[in-house]
Design a binder for these strands. Structure first.
Lengths: 244, 244
DNA sequence: TAGTGGTCTAGACCACAAA
DNA sequence: TTGTGGTCTAGACCACTAA
């Protein structure tokens, strides 16, 4: 253990250690199947208490990077697992990861009264004003997905001033409204393109569409967005992780 | 805090406390938005140290049941979130949860040599013997999904003796081979039914199918199953959780 | 200022795996 | 028997929230 931790850093010791170990795994310094230094070794070489070491290792376990075996040690997991799309990422980010060129066209951005369906999903009164945002998502110049978002907020009007061709909803929520979206729940199914979808996405009637219906929540569990996503089946797939 | 923890139990104190608090949330004794007892209160009333209390609360946070705010307290989350299908469950279990009557027909159960594709997914040598299991999944008497599973194992022959119309692959792996499947990674997309699928699933050619390709891993990250799932789009959807 | 959760220390004993 | 991770204690100081 050459590197050391800084006691003056604004980052907690356990987090610095977590970062250190994580880096060594991602760079291949610790390879899959390899045993990490023992807790005792980490304590001695870094001069920290066991709680710090265990908290750092716990984060690695949560992150799916290592696993622990009592009596044996802590071992690096192969990287394949994880990196699924159970993470909330922006469309632009996701496309860049896939090496595609993203582009967004805002079709509609209006204030409207929540329908019964929308109100129910967002757990608000029917008729409450919400923002409706419809966007066409393109990748490499061709339509990829249609996105319809309903947003609950106080001071909705401020939303209308933003340019959602380039801005992410989550960023606006965070920076302008101080609302952090940290979790979401979605339903996934396969449907056939109806007339509207086939036109917007330039695909034949009945062609397979990956449909997702997502509700996004704040850390406190308050719903803030009801989202409907229609992806072209021939151009889009996503991956996810499952656990016992 | 009326209840107490047992120091003789084989269960750790933090786990007993976790169970206790979890129960109170699930039964509605602690309602969403309500503040839990403070860490100090839990320490005093139960006579345990702060580490025990914090580990129990940490499990609740991981489980998505509560959230913590520094300076304020620990609060119960509304239940809606979570309970998605990011969990590995058996078909039978899943159908029961949905209130449908499951039924399974084994179409094929053979020993074969791994194709290049299968070998790559399972990270084994091309040509290694694997078990191939094809099952038709029915719900309420009608076809719901076609399932094709490739299984890596030593002593594959023992697999062929099982009746997979009623037995779950994961249970056989665990009970007969001592292999615990704890995580999986899958790709999801929408496709149109080809001739074979339209026949097996009794649906029109080109009708939307929810396709999933799953690789299941042991706790050590070794692949054990490569699974292809074709679900009728009109009869199946699944839900999942996302996080920041 | 008082009360909350966040981080950290320096110990202890235990259960389990491998030699 | 030795070494590993799992659990637990009894403290301490800090950062943040709300009054």
């Amino acid at each position: 253990m050459a590197n050391t931790l800084s006691r003056d850093s604004r980052l907690p010791l356990y987090y610095q250690l977590y970062d250190l170990l994580r880096l060594r795994i991602l760079t291949g310094e610790y390879t899959p199947g390899m045993m990490l230094p023992t807790e005792q070794e980490l304590m001695d070489s870094l001069g920290v208490s066991r709680a710090v070491v265990r908290q750092a290792l716990g984060e690695l376990v949560n992150g799916g990077l290592v696993y622990r075996q009592r009596g044996k040690g802590t071992f690096v997991l192969p990287p394949v697992i994880d990196r699924g799309m159970n993470k909330l990422t922006s469309f632009t980010e996701e496309m860049h990861q896939r090496g595609m060129a993203p582009e967004t066209r805002v079709q509609e951005l209006t204030l409207e009264e929540a329908s019964i369906e929308v109100a129910e999903k967002l757990r608000i009164e029917h008729g409450t004003p919400v923002v409706f945002l419809q966007r066409l998502r393109m990748a490499d110049g061709a339509p990829l997905a249609l996105e319809e978002s309903h947003l609950v907020c106080s001071g909705c009007e401020r939303f209308l001033r933003h340019n959602f061709a380039s801005e992410a909803v989550r960023m606006v929520l965070r920076d302008e409204f101080g609302i952090d979206v940290t979790q979401a729940h979605q339903i996934v199914r396969a449907i056939g393109a109806d007339r509207r979808l086939s036109e917007v996405l330039s695909m034949p009637r009945g062609a397979p569409v990956l449909y997702m219906e997502r509700i996004a929540y704040t850390a406190e569990g308050r719903p803030v967005e009801y989202l409907r996503l229609y992806h072209r089946g021939d151009r889009y797939s996503f991956s996810m992780d499952l656990h016992a």
